[in-house]
């Protein structure tokens, strides 16, 4: 790594703060739209981490899909709900929820760290050993797979089916909601 490690550490810290700070912002404010913006800041931090892990394609996807599409969808969804933009009630059973959240957090962090504990040191070159170009990614994505390399053609097509199913499901649900709304008005 040599002399680049300093700027890497700075970048990692900045993105870490963005990710965690954004996540905190989401849960600590009571306005759903501002929550969406905080979420986008958090996801932007995640995109930065993808870049640091030499996966720029994933980073672009993160920005395109999450900030470009999910954020918009969230705002539309927020505006679909009548008065949820200004939540003023305090939630009950706060401590109980907090305890549950902490336990879940510890379990998840443990599950992430446990398998790789001691496997690498931060700033290790091993992180950058297997940088995959987008061309390789594209080839692997539609490859049958062989003894030499993995192919992901089945998951790829399943993803397509899943997307189709998601769209059909969304349309069915949304149409029901639409009909209900009309029924109320009429």
């Amino acid at each position: 790594m040599g002399d680049a490690s300093f700027s890497l550490i700075v970048a990692f810290t900045v993105f870490g703060i963005l990710t965690l700070g954004g996540a905190l912002g989401v849960i600590l404010n009571r306005n759903l739209f501002r929550g969406t913006i905080w979420l986008m800041i958090s996801l932007f931090g995640v995109a930065g981490h993808f870049v640091l892990l030499s996966a720029p394609f994933l980073a672009a996807v993160q920005v395109l899909v999450y900030i470009g599409a999910i954020a918009i969808l969230f705002t539309f969804a927020v505006m679909l709900t009548r008065s949820l933009t200004q939540i003023t009630d305090r939630f009950t059973r706060l401590w109980w929820n907090l305890g549950g959240a902490i336990v879940l957090f510890v379990v998840l962090v443990g599950a992430v760290i446990w398998p790789v504990w001691g496997g690498f040191t931060p700033g290790d070159d091993i992180l950058f050993a297997n940088v995959m170009s987008t061309t390789d990614l594209g080839i692997a994505l539609v490859d049958r797979g062989s003894d030499l390399r993995q192919g992901f053609v089945l998951p790829f097509e399943v993803a397509s089916l899943l997307l189709t199913a998601a769209m059909i499901g969304a349309i069915v649900i949304a149409r029901e909601a639409d009909d209900e709304e009309k029924g109320k008005r009429g």
Binding site: V65, A69, I70, I72, L73, F76, A77, L80, L163, T164, A166, M167, A170, I171, A174
Partner: peptide
């Protein structure tokens, strides 16, 4: 919202 969903897909 429907436009948003279709766009996301």
């Amino acid at each position: 919202y429907i436009y948003g969903l279709v766009f996301l897909v």
